[in-house]
Design a protein around this nucleic acid. Structure first.
Lengths: 340, 340
DNA sequence: GGCGAGTGTGAGAGCGCTCTCATGCCGTGC
DNA sequence: GCACGGCATGAGAGCGCTCTCACACTCGCC
């Protein structure tokens, strides 16, 4: 509990130099004689000096903080460790660059307004935004704030492709789906069905597109397409629907592991063997995928890395006034287990 | 992209009053004629004035930010939506009070140092800390920072019970376990086994204590006690161990849902019926508990609320120089499903 | 030996705000 | 009619820092 917080002034007096010199040493600005530099450093250590960030950012116009805005429905945030992983990656990268992570969870309209005001108030240097909503206000909020922004997940609003200043990071959902479906094709499956997630989310849409790519169709055969909602129950229900059609599919690509697990449940209930009667592939490779019975063949995406890259892109934009960072798509990888 | 950020000065000029008056209006300080107050408010709105927090906190010595420090092994943070929920609760409460949430994830020793320096630097008004580690450095870091601090989860270090200034929030693990085991007893089970989590975590220890309470023993019967690690595999293994002893248990209380699910798997593999041959109770009531086969009887804890209460206690300590907030234990609730 | 270039250091202004204190105005009471 | 208390307002200092600019000093060169 040293004597409160010493100021620059105090350190300067202690070291017998001017405030300016101490400032230079503290900030690593060149142009200070090495011996003086050492002396100042000793004083800093001795007094336990820590710069006052408020005073600093008052003059530098830099806050040293980045806002992470998450506008997701509860379900999604809680359903999987997605955000925990993402935050881990972001946190790593930011703290390596001495930036603070300000977390803003938005739930209702009032939150959007609060976030908007806060960002416009210049309390942070940049933002990282997460949202799946088709036409989320975050896009406008980010623009209005004038802050460098990186989006998590491919955005989806009218004309986004033409917005050259837009930077986002996403995993390669489309290619992941391609790998999954190609695997099924390679195993000799002919009637490959698809259970899609909510088609107002880019991840679900892109995975469906990958499925179509491999089968070389513009749209899925309605007989082989069932709609799920990324939940286990939805997957179970969709699988039941598919089985009730004839001829029944001999393989299923589910939009995520949860739905794949639901499908497995339905198959077991009907006495069908996996993968002999029906092969199943999931998506995400969350822990439960390996625990399912049989263990799930699925697509893995590196979420921690996605967070790191988002932070890194933002850092680039922070330092260059002219944003030159471009969006990044993170590759995905098929993990083959017993279910297909 | 309005004309940069107007200052107090600008608003004052626009409204034809002094800086001091604008400040009074912005901060809601009484003693301004209503009509003047209105006029100033109009100017604020018109110019889109937002106070500069750096300048403000430079003079008030308040930062308007709270650090949330999470020092948890990856596994734990990712294994369940615990922290997402927790953060949701904290975030709600903080933003309702116009406080920012600064998230600090600590992974290695360097992180501890960084956090220590940061907190000691007075960049935040208070901290919320999470750690399960027996002797986590966070305790010392919190003390050294001199900041109001609330811990998440019962702390566990020598002499913590005598530390009157300590404030923590936890769920009532012990009573939750009591409810679970009492339920098994009430159903007529006689040989009730327990699968514990890692006994260097308070939650695992407290749940074991609740088990002992109901059975009225100082320690679990070694024949009925197996060690797990809060993972599915661990639960499966522990269940196998228990079944290999004789006489085998007719019920199992697992320290969490993951281990309970593992136990179910082993039981199914051995052709035993649940709950007829062996009843199973879990703990946590995460989503997968309801999806298991059969659905898990388990203990629910209100994690969002835990976060809210942590934030609320911190707020009290922030405003009262003399900490008077006391720790809070959140009640738990048994959820009866098919497994017991 | 004098001059310019180069380098290291200090003085001082000012970032935007809060808050104390002085000032001015009104109404009340004798 | 004058003194006084109370209330609304403004002037100004100062929070701790950065950064520009002026100054001092050293060196090399003609």
């Amino acid at each position: 509990m040293s004597a409160a917080h010493p100021t620059l002034e105090a350190v300067a007096a202690h070291a017998g130099v001017s405030r300016a010199t101490v400032s230079r040493v503290v900030n690593g600005t060149p142009g200070v004689r090495p011996e003086l530099r050492e002396k100042v450093k000793r004083s800093v250590a001795e007094l336990g000096y820590v710069p006052n960030s408020a005073a600093r950012s008052l003059v530098t116009r830099r806050t040293g903080a980045v806002a992470v805005v998450i506008a997701e429905p509860e379900t999604r945030v809680f359903a999987d460790p997605f955000f925990a992983r993402q935050l881990r990656g972001i946190s790593r990268e930011l703290s390596a660059n001495d930036l603070q992570l300000l977390l803003m969870l938005v739930e209702d309209d009032a939150d959007y307004q609060r976030v908007g005001r806060y960002l416009a108030g210049g309390h942070v240097d940049g933002t990282l935004m997460f949202s799946l909503h088709v036409n989320d206000p975050l896009r406008g909020i980010a623009a209005a704030s004038g802050l460098p922004t990186v989006f998590g997940g491919r955005p989806w609003w009218p004309g986004w492709e033409d917005d050259a200043s837009l930077v986002y990071v996403d995993t390669d959902n489309r290619d992941g789906a391609r790998q999954a479906v190609r695997h099924l094709v390679d195993r000799g499956h002919r009637r490959i069905a698809v259970i899609t997630g909510p088609l107002d989310q880019t991840s679900a849409v892109d995975r469906l597109a990958g499925y179509c790519d491999v089968l070389d169709v513009p749209e899925p055969d309605p007989a082989l397409h069932a709609h799920g909602d990324f939940t286990l129950e939805g997957g179970a229900r969709a699988m039941a629907e598919l089985l009730d059609r004839s001829p029944a599919p001999d393989a299923v690509f589910a939009g995520n592991d949860l739905m794949a697990t639901g499908a497995l449940r339905t198959l077991r209930a009907r006495g069908l063997a996996v993968p002999e009667d029906v092969a199943v592939v999931g998506y995400d490779d969350l822990d439960p995928a390996a625990w399912s019975d049989p263990p799930l063949t699925t697509v893995r995406q590196d979420i921690v890395r996605m967070g790191e890259i988002m932070a890194r892109l933002l850092l680039e934009n922070l330092n260059e006034p002219e944003p030159k960072a471009r969006s990044v798509i993170i590759p995905t990888e098929l993990v083959v287990r017993a279910s297909a």
